[in-house]
Design a protein around this nucleic acid. Sequence first.
DNA 1: GCAGCGAAAGACAAGTTGTCTCGCGAAATG
DNA 2: CATTTCGCGAGACAACTTGTCTTTCGCTGC
Lengths: 198, 198
Amino acid sequence: MATRRYEQRLRAQSAEQTRRRVLDAVYDQLPKIPSVDAVARQAGVARSTVYLVFGSRAGLFDALLHDVSERGGFADLVRAVQDPDPLTHLRGAVLASTRIYGGQRDVLVALRAEAASLEGALERTEQGRLGGLVHLANRLDENGLLAVEKDVAVDVLWTLTGFEAFDALHTGRGLPVDDVAARLLLTAERTLLRLPPP
Amino acid sequence: MATRRYEQRLRAQSAEQTRRRVLDAVYDQLPKIPSVDAVARQAGVARSTVYLVFGSRAGLFDALLHDVSERGGFADLVRAVQDPDPLTHLRGAVLASTRIYGGQRDVLVALRAEAASLEGALERTEQGRLGGLVHLANRLDENGLLAVEKDVAVDVLWTLTGFEAFDALHTGRGLPVDDVAARLLLTAERTLLRLPPP
DNA sequence: GCAGCGAAAGACAAGTTGTCTCGCGAAATG
DNA sequence: CATTTCGCGAGACAACTTGTCTTTCGCTGC
C-alpha cells in the first residue's frame, strides 16, 4: 500500500470551483434561507457533495460567514481606521461599516438567523470589531476629546456600530444607508465628544 | 338536529388551563427553542392538542408574543409615559423598557428567532413603541428641549429603546441591566437634549 | 340517560438534516 | 498507456419535524 505522490493541479482547482458554486447558490436564494437540498439543486451539484465539502449545514453557513468577511468593502474600513486624525477615524469607521452592512444586509440577516447553529462563530468574528473600538476609544481619550469614561465610550460605540443598530434604522425605520450613517454618527459624536458638532 | 343550548363553565375553564399549561411549557424550555412535540410532552398534553388550540407552531409563538405583551412590567412603562415632566418621561421610559427586556430576555430571543414564521406580528407589536416615541419626541420638542430635528429624535430613540440595543450591551458586552439602562439613557440625553447632563 | 365537546391517540404525508455505500470518469503518475 | 487516486453523482436510510385527519374516550351539562 505504498501510497504514491499525488500533486493536484486541475483537480484542486475544480474542487475550488464547486465550492464557490455552492456558496454562490446560497447568495442566489437570499433573502430566503434555503435548505441544503435547495442549495445543491441551485448549484447543479449533488446534495451529498455539499456535505462532502462543508461537512454540515452549519459548516456551510460558517464558510459563508468567512466568505462575507473576506469580501465587500472591508478595505475602506481598514483605510478609515488608519487615518491620523481620531475624528476622521470615527467618522470613516461609522460610514464604512454602515455601507458594508447595507451591501451585505441579506447575508447578514441569514447568518443571524443561523446563529444558533454556528456556536459563537459570529461572536468570534465580532471580537475584531470590539478590538477596533477599544483602539478608537483610546485614541479619542489620548487626544482629550472624550466627554465620557473610556469604558462607556466603548459600550456606546459597540451599540451604534453593530448590525442590529443599522438594521433598526434601515429596515425598521426605512432609512436609506447614508441617512442611517448620518444618524449613527450624530449620536456617537454628540454622546462621546467634548465639543460635539451643532 | 336541533342543537341545544350549551353554556360552558367548567369546560371552558379547563380549556383555558390547558392553554396556559402549553404556554408555560414553552417558557420552561427556554432558552432552547423547543419543537411542538417537546412542548406537548412538557405540558403533559397530546401534540394534536397543541395544534387544536393554537393551529400551528407559528400560532403557538404568536400566542406567546401576546402573552409576553400582557405580562411583565408594562405597568411601569405606562406609568412613566404619563409623567407630566418630559424629561422624567424619557428617563422612566428607558429604564422601564430596559427592565422589561432584562426580565423577558429569553422569550424575546426566542420570538426573534421565530420572527420569520410570524409574518410581521412582531413588527406590529413594535408599532406601539414607535407611537410612544413619536409622542415623547413631540413633548420634548414642545418644551424646547430638543437639540435636533424631531424626526432625528424619533430615529435615535427607536434605535436606543429597541431590544437589539439592549441585548448588544447586556449579552454582547456583559453589562447588568441597570448599567445598560444608564448607557442608553446617557446616549439619548446627550444626543437629543439641548442641555445634556455632564 | 343522552348529547356535546375538549382532549388523547395514532396513522399518515411531506420536508429536513445527516450518514453511508457504490460507482463513474477524469486527472495524476510511472 | 496502464494504473492509481479522488472529486463527485446517485441514491438508500434513519431520525426528526411540522401539519392534517380520523377515531375514540370521558366528563360536562341538559
